[in-house]
Amino acid sequence: MQAATIKLFLVHGSPSGLRTAELSNWSGKAVAAPRTEISSLLKREELTSPGFYFLTGVDPDSGDRAIYIGEAENVANRLKAHSSKDFWNSVTVFVSKDENLTKAHIRYLEGILIEKANNNGSAVVVNSVNSGAKLPESDAADMDIFLEKCLQLLPVLGVSYFNEKIDPVSDSKELLYCKIKGLIATGKRTANGFLVFEGSQAVLEHRPSAVHSIKKRELLIDKGFLKKDGDYFVFLKDIEFGSPSTAARVVRGGASNGLTAWKNSKGVSLKELEENET
């Protein structure tokens, strides 16, 4: 991504409250707010325009981070319909300042974002379908550039589910290992949680009390991220979890304290490593 100047405006003065974000020389605009300020958000003129949005929160069943990605020709009206969804606690909206986003444009962007979120695997994607839309080549190129700017702003607004994952080779000295029954999973603490690397192994059988990990593992299996290989599971790609404990639960098949389950090559736990840093 190119260097950029970001203009943030805190509408009520709070960095976690209603706020807007813009990039220099860009026609887009982002508006974000916690659910507690949804009434103020819905009154904003920008939200009567076509746009796409992200509802973010926590999946009540698995305890993992969750995201819903939607689009609408009138975002404010569409958001009102999401009041029945109880998982989300914040919303981030993107619109165009020059009013050049069409229904086809926002459906195209929504489709790409849902696909990216599913492939990333760092959060439960609440969407049941992926609509998407085809665009003329020139329009698609313009929207790809628009999307790149959106992805640049999202982490600043607290939506980090689309971040590129780290290179495990260049950070090999920071690798951590979770071992159980002769199986080994390799991972690393990240700014967003914990990343388990491709090729890591996980136990095949769940523990009787493994309610949350069963659902998470089934989701990873359905997406083709976790596959049975003989008498264990293997990770087919890098997967970022919301916490070290969530990652450890999937690897070990039941409740686990990730701070003690993950250790470096010398056997020092993540908990000890973090305590030594403070």
Rank of each mutant, 00 (worst) to 15 (best):
E272S: 15
K223L: 15
K80V: 11
A30M: 10
M1S: 14
E272R: 12
T260Y: 04
S269C: 06
V203H: 08
T246M: 09
G187W: 00
A117T: 07
A104F: 05
S269I: 04
L273C: 11
E277A: 06
L219A: 14
L10F: 15
G193E: 05
S128T: 09
S62I: 14
L41A: 04
Q2P: 09
A21R: 03
N127P: 05
F54R: 03
H212W: 05
G230L: 10
E22Y: 04
L226Y: 06
D61R: 03
S83P: 00
G158E: 07
L226P: 02
K173A: 14
E274L: 15
E164P: 02
A123P: 01
R189F: 08
L176D: 01
K103R: 15
E73N: 13
G13P: 03
F87Y: 14
I106M: 08
K149C: 07
H206R: 04
K85D: 13
G51L: 12
F94C: 09
E46H: 02
K223Y: 08
V234D: 03
K85M: 12
L236H: 07
A3Q: 13
D61T: 02
Q2G: 12
N25S: 13
K173T: 10
T102F: 08
S243N: 09
L204V: 04
N264H: 01
K216S: 10
